[in-house]
């Protein structure tokens, strides 16, 4: 789903200036950086952090929706939701693989998520108490993710860009199925319409926070832009998302929970009210409504699945031993 610009302070590194200049020249020439190429330590660290946080977001992102698989209102919705959650698992795997090319192991990455050392997108720390939330996640959360991910298809690190191309291809189904759920509710009974509106009221602001801190407060955007890890600022992407999404909501007769939301004839954009950054910081720091529950669920899934991994390894060893024995017998 989405990598959030969390902007953790980066320590200064002491790279060879000549190599650094050559590296920047390659970036400026739009060459892709590959895993075995020389890269500044800061670039490597930024990417390990961003790609792994992106992977964690996909994996944790399976939880709020997994909540509704057994209670989807029809077989069609259930099949679609299952496929979407399975995609998210797949997206997490593509991204873990991309991060691993930078020299970090899968076990370390999983450990960082479980210990709370690594972050994931703040959006997944909000609960999903109604079926309308499944629609809202697809429409708004995946919609915001697509806005952010399309430019990442051209990010400077090759394996990350390639993973993003694959993910973006699959993601558009997510947004459309979400919008269709919201549309069905918005055109349903008054109670269903109310459910859709109530859900939009809860998700709108957290969805806008997905783009990360405002440009004025973002500490690392400049360096990431220079390295072409990032190509658009947080605020620019957020505005693009608002401009695309507001008419889609109005089409359904829904209202947005922002009294300051107004179309600006002069700029051609939708002006919006102030985002509650205090809430954003609270959720990022672990004080959101579901942070503890999400990590607990991940750790439980990992521990409960340990026997499967052990059995698979034991089976592989047994099969290899049998093959070897058969070979000896044949000789």
């Amino acid at each position: 789903m989405y990598a959030q610009a969390l902007n953790v302070a980066e320590q200064a590194t002491h790279d060879d200036p000549e190599k650094l200049a050559r590296f920047q020249a390659r970036i400026d020439a739009e060459e892709k950086i590959e895993p075995n190429d020389w890269m500044p330590e800061g670039y490597r660290r930024t990417l390990v952090r961003q790609v792994s946080q992106h992977a964690h977001s996909e994996i944790v992102g399976m939880l709020p929706e997994g909540n509704w698989i057994t209670r989807a209102p029809s077989l069609k919705r259930k099949a679609a939701l299952l496929a979407k959650v399975q995609d998210e698992g797949g997206h997490g795997l593509y991204l873990y693989s991309a991060a691993e090319t930078l020299g970090v192991s899968r076990e370390e990455l999983v450990e960082q998520l479980h210990s709370g050392k690594a972050k994931y997108s703040s959006i997944f720390n909000y609960p999903t108490p109604s079926w309308a939330d499944m629609g809202m996640i697809g429409w708004l959360v995946d919609g915001a993710a697509i806005m952010n991910q399309i430019p990442l298809c051209r990010t400077s690190f090759g394996p990350y860009a390639r993973a993003m191309i694959r993910i973006c291809k699959e993601e558009s189904f997510h947004q459309r199925q979400g919008y269709e759920i919201v549309m069905t509710l918005a055109r349903g009974t008054p109670a269903q319409k109310k459910m859709a509106q109530e859900s939009l009221n809860r998700w709108w602001w957290p969805a806008l926070m997905m783009f990360g801190p405002s440009d004025a407060a973002s500490q690392h955007s400049d360096q990431n832009m220079k390295w072409k890890i990032k190509r658009f600022s947080n605020d620019a992407l957020r505005q693009k998302f608002i401009d695309a999404t507001v008419p889609q909501g109005h089409f359904l007769g829904l209202t947005f929970p922002d009294p300051d939301l107004k179309f600006n004839e002069a700029t051609g954009h939708w002006d919006h009210g102030e985002i509650d950054w205090a809430e954003f910081n609270r959720v990022v720091k672990g004080e959101g409504p579901c942070n503890r529950e999400r990590i607990k669920a991940r750790i439980k899934a990992h521990e409960d699945g340990a026997w499967v991994r052990e059995a698979a390894l034991a089976f592989a060893a047994k099969r290899a031993a049998r093959k070897a024995a058969a070979k000896i017998a044949a000789e």
Binding site: R106, A312, A316, A317, R319
Partner: peptide, 11 residues
């Protein structure tokens, strides 16, 4: 297409 972890070729 990409890479993945698995105990053996079949898996």
């Amino acid at each position: 297409a990409g890479s993945l972890h698995a105990p053996d070729a079949e898996m």
